[in-house]
């Protein structure tokens, strides 16, 4: 049995023919759509490396079956920057050295983008730490990650204030 789904991935509408309902969103992105920026760290929702946005919300793509996502809007790390202009969260991660090996980084960044849009953490370091605790970093760049998320939150708030002013 084959399943035909339509997805918007980083702004591009795509039709995906799935010969197998077992394919997770993570494996679809990585093995079939050539979007390898999203990483597999545990495949069980325990590390956050595979975090992407589905309809604007951060989720673990390893625990999401592709076949269930017909019509969904997916944003991955590849779709975050605006051409050569980095998203404020990406820029802040570089500036604050919020990574070392870089493997968990796409998931950290997508999680941070999701966290910021959820709007519950603000610039409170403790809330940011809690909100980012679903993303493990074995290099343990947590200090820089927290600083980067707070900094990006601030910058994004300033930008949106300027826009609305």
């Amino acid at each position: 049995m084959s399943y035909s789904i339509s997805l918007t991935v980083n702004g591009d509408q795509r039709r995906v023919e799935l010969d197998d309902p077992r394919v997770t969103l993570l494996d679809l992105l990585r093995e079939r759509l050539d979007l390898t920026g999203t990483k597999k760290g545990c495949d069980r929702g325990q590390c956050g490396a595979c975090t992407v946005l589905v309809d604007g919300r951060r989720v673990n793509s390893c625990l999401s079956l592709a076949v269930t996502l017909d019509g969904a809007d997916i944003t991955t790390i590849e779709g975050l920057a605006d051409g050569d202009t980095l998203h404020p969260v990406q820029a802040a991660f570089i500036e604050h050295d919020g990574f070392q090996c870089g493997y968990c980084t796409p998931g950290q960044i997508m999680s941070a983008v999701g966290l910021i849009s959820e709007g519950h953490a603000g610039e409170d370091p403790e809330r940011v730490r809690e909100g980012m605790s679903g993303n493990l970093c074995r290099c343990a760049a947590y200090h820089g990650i927290t600083e980067a998320v707070i900094d990006a939150t601030r910058r994004m708030a300033e930008t949106s204030e300027r826009k609305s002013a």
Binding site: T36, G37, I77, E78, I94, F99
Partner: peptide
Amino acid sequence: GIAKVTGRATYAAD
């Protein structure tokens, strides 16, 4: 840094 924050850094399994 840019390669790593944009998902362009290529790890073995990629």
